[in-house]
Simulated scan of single mutants.
Amino acid sequence: MGTEDRDLLQAVLEALPAGALVQSPTDEVLAVNRRFVDMFDLAGKADLSPGVPMRPLVPLVRAFFSAGFALPHTPGEILARRHAHRVAEIPLTDGRTIRREVEPLRREGAYLGALWLFTDISDAKRSERDLERDNLTLTQLARQRNAFTAAASHELRTPLAAVSSFAELLADPAVGALTAEQSSFLDAIRRNAGRMQRVISDLLLTTRMRASGPELEFAPVDVPGMLTDTLMDHMGEIERARLFAVLDCADGPTLRGDRHRLQHVLGNLLENAAKFTPPGGRITITAAPRGVHWDIEVADTGIGIPDEHRHDIFTGFVRAPNARSGGYPGTGLGLAIARTVVERHGGTITAGGREGEGAVLRLRLPVEGPPPAPGPGP
């Protein structure tokens, strides 16, 4: 190798972000860079001149390797690996971790030697260990949270059931007539008990979904009938809020889905629309088949959703700022549950509209339901 070629090779090695050594086909050192010398503290301890044998250098480098790192020892192992690209992560005795890469050099099939690269990946490995530890901690916290949520929800159900039962008993005319004021108080008790019951149901459903996802029972669903039933179930709430409701649903094919879960989703959207829309406003439900999907929209003329929070609101326990500042009750679970159920149907749910003018929640559900789960591999 001429002087110019040697200088060029040295310049290339010095530009590399890793320690580097070039080995000749006869196991001699052709060149090393400064990073390699510094990485293994070789300055003044080894002759690294071009053409010197590599053998004296090997034990100086291996002295940094942790005792548990396995190296090829037999001639057969060494020859078998000589002509193959190989990578290894090597723990060092000083706590560092390096990645060693050996790349055979060839030209027209002839073996010309090898390029050895040594990269310090200690920071990356520490970050990896920290991430694994943090993930484990988060997993444990999630389990504790789910256990607490389930236990608290079950504990709340018993006294709430008693409150609801006594409220129904007081409403029975056989118990005695109530004054207008007493009837108003009783309505407030029943209304808030119902709201608490829905919150508890959402908490329990959220816990189950986090554990294994909602259990769905797929069957043919008549979409116009489902929407009509859902609207009728919530008309009392809509009328109490002094709102108008419009349903515009085209005819179309049956949808393969879980009617109970889908009605839960649509009911949540109607409850939100009624909650966030001032008296005199309008709730509009539209639905039509488009290609292989059903598109369903629930629109209102309420406070709307800020653009920057249209994705956040589908995360559990997250509520838009205008909902929080406006004093509207809620847990932020309904839309998270809705997204999970819709996605389990192979569909999507998105939010639109304009803040201050109203919200639009759009569902797109495949007529044939979700694609089949992949079967086990061979």
Rank of each mutant, 00 (worst) to 15 (best):
116 W>V: 15
246 V>W: 02
139 T>N: 13
87 V>W: 01
304 G>K: 10
194 G>P: 08
283 I>D: 04
227 L>W: 08
147 A>T: 13
199 V>L: 13
80 A>V: 01
8 L>V: 13
150 A>M: 12
237 E>K: 11
343 E>I: 01
301 T>W: 01
12 V>W: 10
280 G>S: 03
216 L>W: 07
285 I>K: 05
92 L>Y: 04
214 P>F: 03
87 V>D: 04
68 G>N: 14
273 A>Q: 06
137 T>I: 13
313 I>A: 01
302 G>Y: 09
291 G>T: 03
276 F>M: 09
32 V>C: 07
133 R>Y: 12
154 H>Q: 13
340 T>S: 08
203 L>R: 12
205 L>N: 07
283 I>E: 03
129 R>T: 12
361 L>V: 10
196 M>Q: 12
48 L>I: 00
350 T>M: 11
27 D>C: 07
208 R>C: 01
279 P>I: 04
70 A>K: 11
132 E>N: 14
194 G>M: 09
88 A>T: 03
36 F>H: 09
31 A>L: 05
84 A>F: 08
96 R>M: 06
363 L>W: 01
319 R>I: 04
324 R>L: 14
65 F>K: 03
23 Q>I: 15
85 H>C: 02
275 K>A: 09
330 G>P: 06
179 T>G: 15
298 V>G: 01
98 I>W: 06
1 M>D: 06
173 P>A: 00
328 Y>P: 01
130 D>S: 13
144 Q>T: 14
369 G>P: 02
226 M>Q: 08
175 V>H: 11
310 R>F: 03
65 F>L: 05
216 L>Y: 07
76 G>P: 00
268 N>A: 15
169 L>S: 12
200 I>T: 10
11 A>T: 13
202 D>Q: 14
284 T>V: 15
347 G>Q: 00
240 R>D: 15
42 L>R: 01
123 D>K: 14
63 A>D: 09
86 R>M: 10
24 S>F: 01
265 V>S: 01
157 R>N: 10
46 A>F: 05
335 L>D: 00
5 D>N: 11
377 G>E: 12
89 E>L: 07
168 E>H: 10
148 F>G: 05
176 G>P: 04
58 V>I: 14
297 E>Q: 14
201 S>V: 08
21 L>R: 10
345 H>A: 07
262 L>M: 06
182 Q>P: 00
212 S>Q: 14
83 H>L: 08
249 C>V: 15
308 E>H: 12
226 M>K: 05
272 N>I: 03
250 A>F: 05
181 E>K: 12
303 I>Y: 00
369 G>A: 03
291 G>Q: 05
185 F>S: 10
282 R>F: 00
57 L>H: 02
258 D>H: 05
51 G>W: 02
53 P>T: 06
99 R>H: 03
5 D>Q: 11
58 V>H: 08
282 R>P: 01
279 P>E: 07
372 P>T: 07
283 I>R: 04
270 L>P: 07
270 L>G: 07
69 F>L: 05
288 A>C: 09
340 T>F: 00
77 E>C: 06
81 R>A: 14
354 R>S: 13
377 G>P: 04
207 T>P: 02
173 P>F: 02
24 S>E: 02
169 L>C: 09
27 D>I: 00
138 L>C: 08
67 A>T: 11
306 P>K: 09
109 G>W: 04
230 T>I: 06
116 W>N: 15
311 H>N: 12
1 M>S: 14
139 T>C: 12
262 L>C: 04
197 Q>I: 02
167 A>D: 07
270 L>E: 07
215 E>C: 03
